Amino acid sequence: MLMIKAIIRPEKVDHVLSELSDAGFPAVTKMDVVGRGKQRGMKVGDIHYDEIPKEMIMLVVKTEEKDDVLSIIMRNAKTGEKGAFGDGKIFVSEVLEAYTISSGSKGL
């Protein structure tokens, strides 16, 4: 099992979630986050924004489903603006175990 965490622009999150659900990945956790990338924020005129609002989605998938999920997220979260930064980042990590609290069953 793998956990995929994607930090994406807020205006892209609904479309990404819709496409994931349509592809058979409806189980997602979503949360509001703020942060900055390598650019250390953003400057607009004289104002420097140190923390940029984003959304983070997390889902756990079977290892063989990873490429499909990554493709859906990247295709639908990308702005397409040439040289654009701030479209987000995706992190993939191993999940050793998962349990359902109500039943105590192990696995997805």
Rank of each mutant, 00 (worst) to 15 (best):
M1L: 08
M3S: 13
M3I: 11
I4V: 14
I4C: 01
I7H: 04
I7E: 05
I7K: 04
I8P: 05
R9E: 04
R9Y: 01
R9V: 03
R9Q: 13
P10V: 03
P10H: 05
E11L: 06
K12P: 00
V13P: 01
D14I: 03
D14M: 07
H15N: 09
V16T: 06
L17K: 14
L17H: 00
S18Y: 01
S18N: 11
E19Y: 00
E19R: 15
L20Y: 02
L20C: 04
S21Q: 07
S21K: 12
D22N: 10
D22K: 14
D22G: 02
A23M: 02
A23D: 02
G24L: 01
P26A: 04
P26I: 00
P26N: 05
A27E: 07
A27L: 06
V28C: 04
M31Y: 01
D32T: 08
D32M: 05
D32C: 00
V33I: 12
V33C: 05
V33T: 08
V34M: 03
V34E: 07
G35T: 05
R36G: 05
R36D: 02
R36N: 10
G37E: 09
G37M: 05
R40K: 13
M42Q: 13
K43W: 00
V44R: 13
V44K: 14
V44I: 15
G45D: 13
G45Y: 08
H48M: 10
Y49Q: 08
Y49F: 15
E51H: 13
E51V: 07
E51A: 13
E51S: 13
I52T: 09
I52W: 08
I52H: 11
P53H: 13
K54P: 06
E55V: 15
E55W: 07
E55G: 05
M56Y: 04
I57Y: 02
L59D: 06
L59T: 15
L59P: 08
V60K: 04
V60G: 09
V61C: 06
V61Q: 01
K62Y: 11
K62H: 14
E64G: 04
E64A: 14
E65D: 15
E65F: 10
E65M: 14
E65R: 12
K66F: 07
D67F: 10
D67L: 12
D67W: 08
D68M: 14
V69Y: 00
V69K: 00
V69D: 01
L70D: 12
L70H: 14
S71T: 15
I72W: 05
I72Y: 04
M74K: 15
M74S: 14
M74A: 13
R75H: 10
R75T: 15
R75E: 15
R75Y: 02
A77R: 01
A77C: 04
A77E: 02
K78W: 08
G80Y: 11
G80C: 12
G80L: 14
E81D: 11
E81H: 10
K82Y: 11
G83E: 14
G83Y: 08
G83M: 11
A84K: 15
A84R: 14
F85L: 13
F85T: 14
D87S: 07
G88H: 09
K89V: 10
K89W: 04
I90H: 02
I90W: 00
F91W: 03
S93W: 01
E94M: 05
E94Q: 10
V95Q: 05
L96R: 00
E97C: 00
A98R: 11
